[in-house]
Design a protein around this nucleic acid. Structure first.
Lengths: 338, 338
DNA sequence: GGCTGGCACTCGCCGGTGGGGAGTGCCAGG
DNA sequence: CCTGGCACTCCCCACCGGCGAGTGCCAGCC
């Protein structure tokens, strides 16, 4: 087991390395932190920490840098979440309050997170399956062509074009629209499949084909792949790191462009509470030298989606976690209001 | 005036430099292109081209690279637009045909353009002001709270929350909805302000406040800033260039994050036909070593928005222009269908 | 037993140096 | 006006050696 002081040494190493981006040596450590022991003692502690795999040396006769395992210990045991200062909290609220619709909320959130953390921000749109149906609209564009519009309580709006197998009259349309809404409005999206299951039967034979098409289109919107959307921002912050980063930045940018990868990444995080994935803990190879801090957000107690940041493993964890948590909280509030 | 051969030399320099990313010398030029003259002659031509500002040397005793002015001449006089090959055109169409809604069309277009050109792609959403109103929907969320949903012929859907000054009954709502639609449906967005100008008056006194609020919200959606949206992608392609690029890539990423900058950039381009802005021709400083190739697209003959790519000035202009034009054409078709 | 100062050693970083090569400008001749 | 020849310029790169930060180990001390 690691002694109290050795943990303190690890904390100091993480702190200094995050600040300077340079391997930290025993002498510098004792100068910057009052550990109450000499460099020689710290050297022994460092040797022990290295033995256990918490820190490593880039080369012999260089200082130490934390390993993924070291950061993990730091995050789990040594670091708290640094709460945001009051003026910053006010700034967040003011900025988000100006949003005009959901796209705007998400866009502003991304900008905000990126700016606060100086890292890459990722914000998922509220999941349809975890939202409630506010309204279903059906519009006739042409005799045999409809547009389906879904509106959720979280402000999301989805639209689909529908080609009907047969012309569909205006009265039938109004009828279908009314019946659909009376069944699903105010209900959870996840429940929609059961709620509309037997709807087709109650229509005239000539309209059944169209009704069935509409219903299947409705259900298709819930398919995983199209259901989840997200927005990212702050990629310029990637350039703040590593002088060597042509090699570093590229796979990260590539991973960020793959929405599928990001969705999986966020999906892996626990549903409630904050999740921190460090370096190789991320399944995706391009992200093996980055950490992902994510948390769910929602209008009520339940999370409707997630947001987070992607940054170098060498990041300010307490500060980042504080910012992510604070932003998630305010976004939740904004959504509840709208 | 530049002789025919000197133009040919410039073309060869651009061609080789784009391919190799290295300054090109007289000897290498004569070896790779059959100019029919000796290196010494080419040297004279190069000196003349340099005198006129079309090419430059990074250092004395190095090869030449084209200047912005050189690329300009190349694009205007020496290069055509390279049409896409048939299989590629089919691939474009197939890929775009799978889109399920406007967001999807735009997202797919961005991916496609980025992949085809191996550069950063920018796609603007169809402008509201240049679209036609398909439908206006008003939903009651609470006694004094409405949701306004606008649907355009280009598939764009905008929503706004409205807090009414007074409760608004269901019959009044249906009335307003019907009257609004009969006035604006099928009309151009740009004309909406006049079309609804005097609508308030025809309502009962108690409802006028709410009607006015609804109308002003409707008009606000047409304000420039929120009216235009865009999506970018392919930023990972930036890493393909310049070994020196921590300095190069950063301002570009920063510029790309500023939607305002990009919108202005696209806005400056001519409305019809393809626009190429080379290096310093771009007003924004961060983009002074990039070129922007953009073109309008639309469902009919008129452009409803623009799309394009951002890449290093040292890019394959004919190929890029071909890809941009082809994609714009197909996107227009897709929009016309929906 | 744990902490400390001392010491020899390692190794990356940095600035200086020198040869090689690609490219140039100029000139005289065809 | 084109061409071959020639002297010159500089960038690139590989090599080298000193410096310094940092380490591991050891003997001594509390």
């Amino acid at each position: 087991m690691l002694s109290e002081r050795r943990l303190e040494v690890l904390r100091a190493i993480v702190h200094d390395y995050v600040g300077t981006e340079e391997p930290v040596g025993s002498k510098a450590l004792t100068e910057r932190h009052s550990l109450g022991v000499s460099p020689a003692t710290v050297r022994n502690d460092m040797a022990a920490l290295e033995e256990e795999g918490f820190i490593a040396q880039p080369h012999t006769s260089a200082g130490r840098i934390p390993t993924d395992k070291g950061y993990r210990l730091f995050v789990d045991k040594l670091a708290g979440v640094k709460p945001m200062a009051a003026p910053e909290r006010r700034a967040i609220q003011n900025f988000l309050d100006g949003a005009v619709d959901l796209d705007d909320v998400v866009a502003r959130t991304v900008r905000l997170l990126a700016q606060l953390t100086r890292q890459v921000a990722v914000v998922q749109y509220p999941s349809l399956t975890r939202s409630t149906v506010r309204h279903v609209e059906l519009l006739s564009l042409a005799p045999a062509r409809l547009m389906l519009v879904l509106i959720t309580d979280t402000g999301r709006v989805e639209q689909r074009m529908i080609d009907c197998p047969a012309p569909f009259g205006e009265t039938s349309l109004a009828d279908l629209r009314a019946r659909l809404n009376s069944r699903v409005a105010g209900r959870r999206f996840a429940d929609v499949p059961q709620l509309v299951q037997d709807m087709t039967e109650s229509f005239d034979a000539e309209d059944r084909g169209t009704v069935a098409t509409v219903l299947s289109t409705l259900l298709e919107t819930l398919v995983e792949e199209t259901e989840e959307r997200l927005m990212i921002g702050g990629t310029a912050n990637l350039t703040r790191f590593g002088h060597d980063f042509p090699l570093t930045i590229r796979p990260v940018l590539e991973a960020l462009e793959e929405q599928v990868v990001l969705l999986k990444l966020l999906g892996e995080a626990t549903d409630s509470g904050m999740t921190v994935r460090i370096g190789h803990e991320n399944a995706h190879e391009g992200l093996s030298s980055t950490s992902v801090v994510s948390v769910g957000y929602g209008s009520g107690s339940e999370a409707v989606a997630k947001l987070g940041v992607v940054g170098p493993t060498r990041m300010d964890y307490p500060g980042t976690m504080g910012a992510v948590r604070a932003v998630a909280r305010y976004v939740g509030q904004i959504l509840a209001e709208s």
